[in-house]
Design a protein around this nucleic acid. Sequence first.
DNA 1: GTGCCTGGCGTTCGGGTGCCAGCATGTTAG
DNA 2: CTAACATGCTGGCACCCGAACGCCAGGCAC
Lengths: 275, 275
Amino acid sequence: MLAPERQARILKQLQVHEAVRVADIAAALNVSEMTIRRDIESLDANGLARKIHGGATRLARLSALEPGFLLNVDKELDAKLAIAREALELVRPGMTLALTGGTTTYQLAVHLAAALEGLGHLTVVTNSLKVAELLYHQQGRADCKVIVTGGERTPSEALVGPVARAALHTLNTDICFMGVHGLDADRGLTTPNLLESETNAAFIESTRRLVVLADSSKFHVRSLATIAPLSAVDTIITDDGAAPATRELFASRVPTFTAVAVPADTTKNQTRKSS
Amino acid sequence: MLAPERQARILKQLQVHEAVRVADIAAALNVSEMTIRRDIESLDANGLARKIHGGATRLARLSALEPGFLLNVDKELDAKLAIAREALELVRPGMTLALTGGTTTYQLAVHLAAALEGLGHLTVVTNSLKVAELLYHQQGRADCKVIVTGGERTPSEALVGPVARAALHTLNTDICFMGVHGLDADRGLTTPNLLESETNAAFIESTRRLVVLADSSKFHVRSLATIAPLSAVDTIITDDGAAPATRELFASRVPTFTAVAVPADTTKNQTRKSS
DNA sequence: GTGCCTGGCGTTCGGGTGCCAGCATGTTAG
DNA sequence: CTAACATGCTGGCACCCGAACGCCAGGCAC
């Protein structure tokens, strides 16, 4: 057991558990506690973990991270799950996908990562650092190339701006999954962030087929900036929570409109934390 | 048993095991340990494996966490720390910095993040997702804009390729801090990754001043691809571990050459004012 | 409060292992 | 023959690991 190997094991443990104990690791790896302490010390010095009394703990990561992000994920989680599942049906082996930033597309990415093995080679273009991270960790296990657009970061963890736009101008994708903040019959797809609207417009220009993922709370919402008119949309995937009139209105405006059923209570896997 | 054959065997072993020992391989192949060490050294220079104390470890794999990146950080840690500290001296408020991928620049980013408050407004351009993550988490606390170049990911967590290059063509930076894999008097700055060399070359074109950060183990190392000749370098910052002849050689080739003292014993990173 | 115990930490020292520079040898090519 | 390259060997050095000891803090009894 070599030193870097041990340290890798410690970090791996820390991805699962919030903290680890020196004694536990020492026993598990069959080395002295002193050695583990030195390993932790080294990890700490490198800014990869934090040394605490009795063991080590990870730095920020999933817990402290995402102030607005995780909170938002929970909202309408079941709907987003169902939508993501439906969207996944559109993916075929060999395709080049685009995924914009946002929590809905992130859900899709999670599902995509889980299903990668059955999908052969895929290329994914994204301006979301979180999606890039997620898919990158699947690498080795599956055949998936990830391309990041670059740009500046918005509070919602997406990369935007001239750099992102320029990158998208040189890329062509088969299908683009886009999460939006609002979907209005007159004002089209909207988002509160000007730069994001511009970037998302570039996504639309670069794709053959635009799929908008929007839970039912997004209908009739107008945010600051319009990304594109409804006529640019090829497919809308939503849940069944919208009023029938609303559903019909939007269904009549786009070539394909899918409203997936969301199990009412859904005592799903791990949800249920907040009541 | 020829050299390429041995090295192939080592790589094969690494696909199965997280790490291998010099002694084991030497025994298995019935050659001297010295030969295996040289093989591993070569594999490392070509970016196919990573040399560690006692053997070799693979770069990326299913291990879920950053592979060669974190494991390697330990090596030359004190030197990298001292180098980072020195590099930080070159940063002035209002500057636009570029940081390439690599462990040395990551160390710089860690220091930079800690010192952000005193530096006023900064703009940082990077092709390293880890650096982007790190600096982004400082946001709010300090005035620092982070721009990611975009591109595809290499095993060493850097973004490279046409997208990165195109982004860099549109950006201009005051100073670029670059970590390299090798620094050779004849072959200049080198790296095992072809795409990375191309991207780093783009970094050089886009900056006013190029600062190469290289601990003393990097001198006289030739990796696969040349990024740029030594004449492109404005400043080299290294530690004091190189032979005097080496130091003089490189010092005579670049306008500014700084060898920072690395306290010999000081296993402690924290200051230690008591004497 | 004092005294004792316990658990974790850090230092220090010693043994062992691995690393490297330098030289010697063998092989191949010109 | 010389040159270049690959391999093996050796002695000195550096590093890693483990164990022992002392330090410090908290808990508990008195």
